[in-house]
């Protein structure tokens, strides 16, 4: 819990202040840890920072489409779904992933809209096999 709080505080400082202040912030941070006797938390703080960074980068909304998909034909449908999911369409990152087979998938941190042929094929197979 304490390590997480330290990691969040450091992350917020580093992301809000200019880049040239980075070294000074980190030196100050280490000084604060030493003064409070919490240097032993450093490995856990580093792990938490890594988790925050990974979570942050994976939380951006993405749309997965198979290679060669025509963006224009999907755009209007995707825009409609974005309004359903309260996503700003301009923030969507397009990624090509042949594993979806066809269709598309919109994914955010908390929800996904799955209109892929992959899911349809898996569902059909499970129905036939049951």
């Amino acid at each position: 819990m304490l390590a997480r709080s330290y990691a969040h505080a450091l992350n917020q400082l580093l992301s809000t202040l200019p880049a040239y202040e980075g070294d000074r912030i980190i030196r100050s941070f280490l000084g604060v840890l030493a003064r409070r006797g919490h240097r032993a938390l450093l490995p856990r703080i580093v792990r938490e920072l890594s988790r925050i960074h990974t979570s942050g980068s994976s939380n951006k909304p993405v749309v997965l489409v198979p290679r060669g998909s025509e963006r224009e034909t999907l755009q209007s449908r995707i825009d409609a779904i974005c309004s359903q999911l309260a996503i700003e369409p301009t923030t969507l990152a397009w990624q090509e992933d042949d594993r979806v087979v066809g269709g598309f998938l919109i994914r955010t941190k908390h929800a996904q809209y799955d209109a892929t042929y992959r899911r349809a094929l898996i569902t059909l197979y499970q129905k036939l096999a049951s």
Partner: peptide
């Protein structure tokens, strides 16, 4: 067979060990 899209609530596993998974997301 009807292929209808679905909206699913999801999360992502950030840590897993000893039978416990920490999941980022799953807001509801």
């Amino acid at each position: 067979f009807s292929h209808e899209a679905v909206v699913e609530k999801i999360g992502r596993v950030t840590v897993v060990g000893d039978g416990i998974a920490e999941v980022d997301g799953l807001a509801e």
